[in-house]
Structure formats: structure tokens, C-alpha cells
Simulated scan of single mutants.
Amino acid sequence: MSGLLQATPIFMNIKLWERMAEVHIIGELVGANGFPSGSLSCKWGLTLGSAWKVLEGLQEGQTQVDHPQDGSFAKWSHPINIHLACKGLQGWPKLHFQVLHEDFFGRQELYGYGFCHVPTVPGIHNLECVTWKPIGTFKEQFIGFFLGGNPELKDETSIYTTQDRQNLRTEAMGNVSLRLGIILRNFDKFGVEVS
């Protein structure tokens, strides 16, 4: 009897979110190019507004390190499969990235930050997300040249928000390639046209 009572609130919660608009993101982090050297991996995450809820799937992850033979394109083919429900459009999902380089000794250093909005139109989308890294002061650059490492953000929300980003000195880096399939459901019930 107690098992039935525990299952009831979960069942009611699922039913509530079933009546909401839904977004299903199915795709992959294909890889990266345009970085100074190979041996790259990528940490990624999904940022949502307060009106959004993850129904299924992981909201963050990390790829393997790829050591491309020609050094030009790091291939990850890392899957992304996230099912979301929303009560409103504010806080539309964004994917954010940290591209890391692994050196000869296995140390990882930051090569770039980037983010992109999840497309609002259903279908298959090939995206190129540009990345950047903070360059720091002359002293930090000098130390980084001889000892390795790059300046990193204290607060990672600066990757995908404009708060405090205008004060950063940055350098353009390479691109992260994504292939995303977007499925939208029940948006028409709430008066939102998608095409």
C-alpha cells in the first residue's frame, strides 16, 4: 500500500508536464576545428530558464579526447539526447561549451568557451559555435607561455550571459560543430506557431 502512495505524486507530476509544450533535442557534438593544436575534448552543458524542466536525458557531459592524425578536425561524435517541457518561452535552452586541450603530459588547459541557442524551428540543423578565451594581463600571458595554462573564468555563467562579459579581454579561437534534430510538440495548443 505504501508503494502505491509513493507512486501517486510522481504519476501526477508526469501528467502535469505532459500537458505542457515540449522540445526534444537529438543530435551530436560532431567535433571542432580551427584551434592551435589537436588533442581536444569538450565539456558541454544545457542552460534553461525557470519555466523549463528536463524530462529525460543528461543536462551536461564531456567528450573523449581526440588526437587527429592531420591535426585539423577533432572528431567527437558525442551524442546529445534531451527531452524538455516548458511553461513559457523565456529562458529558451542554450548549449554552452568549454574546449580543452590535453598536452603531452596529460594536463588539460582551456582552449575556448562558447555557446549557442538551441534552434527554435523543428528539423535538422548543422551549427557552428564560435569560441573565445580570456587573454588576461601581460603578466598572465607571459607566465602561461612558459608554464602552460590559460586564464579561466571564475564564474562560468559568463559564458552564456552578458553580465560582466564586457569587461573581458578575449581572443577568438576555433569552432565547435553540432548536428541537432529538434522536435517540437504541443506549441500550437498554446498559440505558438513554429515553421
Rank of each mutant, 00 (worst) to 15 (best):
E56H: 10
S37E: 00
Q141C: 09
N167M: 11
K154Y: 13
L40V: 08
G61F: 00
Q62A: 13
W76H: 08
E156Q: 14
T161H: 02
D103H: 07
Q163I: 15
W52C: 07
E171H: 05
I25E: 05
P134G: 10
N167A: 14
V121L: 11
S37V: 08
C129P: 02
Y111H: 15
T161C: 10
D155W: 12
G106V: 11
S50R: 10
G57K: 05
L46C: 14
S39E: 03
L58V: 07
Q98K: 15
W92H: 09
H24C: 06
C86Q: 07
I135P: 03
V54F: 00
G123P: 00
H125W: 14
G49H: 06
E109C: 12
R169S: 15
F145M: 12
Q166F: 13
L147W: 04
L100C: 09
P93K: 09
K75A: 08
K53T: 12
S77A: 11
Q69N: 03
Q163N: 15
G57C: 02
T47D: 00
I82Y: 03
V65C: 05
V54I: 14
Q98F: 08
G38V: 06
G49Q: 09
R169I: 10
T137F: 00
G34D: 05
P68E: 07
K75Y: 01
S41R: 06
K139V: 12
G49P: 04
L40N: 07
L95E: 11
E128Y: 05
G144D: 05
W44H: 08
V65L: 00
G34H: 04
F142Y: 04
T137Q: 02
W132P: 02
E28R: 10
H125N: 12
L110W: 08
F115K: 04
F35V: 07
R165Y: 08
E152N: 08
G106N: 13
H101F: 15
S39R: 10
P122S: 15
G31K: 07
L168Y: 14
E156K: 15
G148S: 13
S50I: 06
K133P: 00
L84F: 09
A74N: 11
L48G: 06
F146Y: 07
L46S: 09
E102A: 13
G71A: 03
P93A: 06
G61C: 09
G38D: 11
K94E: 07
W76N: 06
H125C: 11
V99S: 02
S50M: 05
F73L: 03
L153H: 14
E102T: 15
V54S: 10
W132A: 09
K53P: 01
Q108F: 05
D103M: 01
T131Y: 07
L100W: 15
S72T: 06
G144I: 04
I124T: 14
I159H: 15
N81I: 03
F105G: 03
F145A: 14
K53D: 00
W92A: 01
H125S: 10
S50E: 12
G91Y: 03
G112L: 03
L153N: 13
Y111V: 09
L110F: 00
S158Y: 13
G123C: 02
G136E: 12
G71S: 01
G38C: 02
I80S: 07
I25W: 03
Q64Y: 07
G91R: 05
Y113R: 14
D103E: 00
K154G: 15
G45E: 07
I135T: 14
G136Y: 03
T137E: 07
K139S: 06
T170W: 04
P134N: 06
G71K: 04
